[in-house]
Design a protein around this nucleic acid. Structure first.
Length: 489
RNA sequence: GGCCCGUUCGUCUAGGGGUUAGGACGUUAGAUUUUCAUUCUAGAAACAGGGGUUCGAUUCCCCUACGGGCUACCA
């Protein structure tokens, strides 16, 4: 029988939700759904000094049978396993203070606490066993480190990278349990994944070098047969070159790197998120999924359902991908065009409400359909549609006054009276009235269209001008012409 | 420095021993749109380098170069 697929996302609560993390969640989710498995949310909060008060199947707020899901609530469990490793000889107590280590690193270039150096340090392998035990009993500050074997190779199969090998001589004796009694990520992740019966570990490539530590832990703890499959995802890189995409890049290059707004509690700096800048969730998922995965066809627009259906780890890239803000915006524009007005309403309505525009939903739907193809981000809806709800306050005077002549003044005055008599107030009819009057007065249409537009919307933008006249209504159209005429003359 | 991972247009990528190396974003030119956007057409643009293997390598192997990650009592 195949093992049940259980995956988890284990964010640290110390930062905003980075889009790299969103992609990891997405891949986890797609994989879990595809395999009828479970997706679990767990909080990695083992670092107390960085603790910040602050659609899974199990997790902190969802319940489940493998909790608690917060690592700080699980302290005792880790200690027990760490002690087990010491008893087995796979780990040892180390009494070196942070200052000791600091001095070592300063004195010896590239100092590593490993098989080559541990016999020169202060730990339970260099001082008599009883003395070490006594120290621990008396509460002397100490950590527990893994004892990496010498001259061994750790092999494992990564679902994306294939076979990977590490020489244990090159891996240092990572701290498993810190002096404050909390586990490090290395111990916690292994214990938690075992206890929560995780079948596949999805994480960023930056974790690859510590994989041998984790694998050895699975082995030493006697859980080798339950060890999950490893899936190290490629990184999302800076658009302009070097390194992983970071918060700073967003500020520097002018695009968000967090899913939602994030306020740094230390500096109080606010970083805007994809949600706030006006991305549709569908677009963010879509663009992130395609950053490192494709289905081998030319298709680029995928719904979540399609992705669940088509996603496969074999088609995830090995190499990191530079983030492209232009392409990201394109995904959003595509989704804006793809979604119906009804589907868009939940996003557009609150955005307009912020600007004190609360239109009738029926009317809004019509307008959304009319302008959505000229929008890239959600706030563009305001720029592209405010004039359907309110008369413009400001006019592009250059566009309006350019080549203004008395004859045009006359034209628009006559136009007002013609409009007043127009019965069938629909775009084609409005256009006919407009053009007939223009030709009667022998003025070129091209001379009149732009001024008319500016009178109705305030500038050189918006959909077809006669459609605008139709939707704002006869009286409003006339009012706006009158108002504008008063300003221009 | 050491270890690990990677390398097709500027970017995201398809492809894979014999192809005019395909698509998308961006970009350039044009058409449509009496505003802008959309849409459409066309163009420029890539197999990092060197050795093998082979009748033939962009594709397989090795080396180099370059890029990235890790090298904390952070995750």
């Amino acid at each position: 029988m195949e093992k049940e697929v259980r995956v988890r996302f284990a964010p640290s609560p110390t930062g905003g939700l980075h889009i790299g993390g969103v992609r990891t969640i997405l891949y986890n989710y797609l994989f879990a759904k595809q395999n009828k498995g479970k997706f679990i949310l767990r909080i990695e909060d083992t670092d107390q000094s960085r603790f910040v008060p602050g659609a899974p199947d199990e997790g902190v707020n969802y319940g489940g049978n493998y909790g608690p899901y917060r690592q700080s609530e699980r302290k005792k469990i880790y200690r027990q396993y760490a002690e087990q490793l010491v008893a087995q000889g796979n780990a040892y107590y180390a009494f070196d203070t942070p200052v000791d280590l600091e001095n070592k690193r300063n004195a010896i270039p590239n100092f590593q606490y490993n098989q080559a150096t541990r016999m020169h340090m202060r730990n339970s392998m260099t001082i008599p066993h009883e003395a070490a035990e006594a120290l621990v009993r008396e509460g002397a500050p100490h950590v527990i480190r893994i004892k990496m074997p010498t001259y061994e190779n750790v092999y494992f199969n990564d679902l994306i990278r294939g076979d990977v090998a590490f020489d244990t001589n090159q891996v240092d004796d990572k701290v498993l349990l810190k002096a404050d009694g909390m586990p490090t990520y290395h111990l916690a992740v292994v214990v938690d994944d075992y206890l929560m019966k995780i079948s596949h570990v999805f994480r960023g490539e930056e974790w690859l070098p510590s994989a041998p530590v984790h694998i050895l832990l699975w082995k030493y703890l006697g859980w080798e047969t339950d060890m999950p499959q490893w899936v190290h995802l490629p990184l999302i890189l800076k658009p302009d070159g070097k390194g992983k995409l970071s918060k700073r890049d967003g500020e520097r290059l002018g695009f968000p790197v967090f899913a939602t707004e994030w306020i740094d509690p230390k500096t109080n700096e606010k970083a805007i998120g994809y949600q706030e800048i006006g991305f549709l969730p569908q677009a963010l998922n879509n663009l992130l999924a395609l950053l490192g995965w494709n289905d081998s066809t030319d298709q680029e627009i995928f719904s979540l359902e399609e992705m669940v259906d088509k996603f496969s780890l074999e088609r995830v890239h090995k190499g990191g991908a530079k983030f492209d803000w232009d392409k990201a915006k394109w995904f959003n524009a595509e989704w804006l065009k793809k979604l119906s007005a009804t589907e868009l309403l939940p996003y557009v309505t609150p955005m307009l409400a912020e600007k004190n525009i609360r239109p009738d939903m029926q009317y809004l739907s019509t307008i959304v359909d009319l302008v959505k193809e000229r929008c890239v981000l959600l706030p563009d809806f305001y720029e592209q549609s405010f004039f359907f709800f309110n008369a413009p306050q400001l006019y592009d005077m250059d566009a309006l006054k350019n080549k203004w002549a008395a004859e045009k003044d006359l034209f628009f005055n006559d136009l007002i009276s013609h409009f007043k008599q127009t019965e069938n107030w629909e775009a084609p009819q409005i256009e006919r009235v407009f053009k007939e009057l223009a030709s009667a007065k022998a003025i070129k249409i091209g001379e009149l269209m732009l001024p008319f537009r500016v009178m109705l919307v305030g500038g050189k933008f918006g959909p077809q001008v006669f459609l605008i006249a139709q939707y704002i209504g006869k009286q409003e159209t006339i009012d706006r012409i009158v108002k504008a005429l008063g300003i221009v003359t």
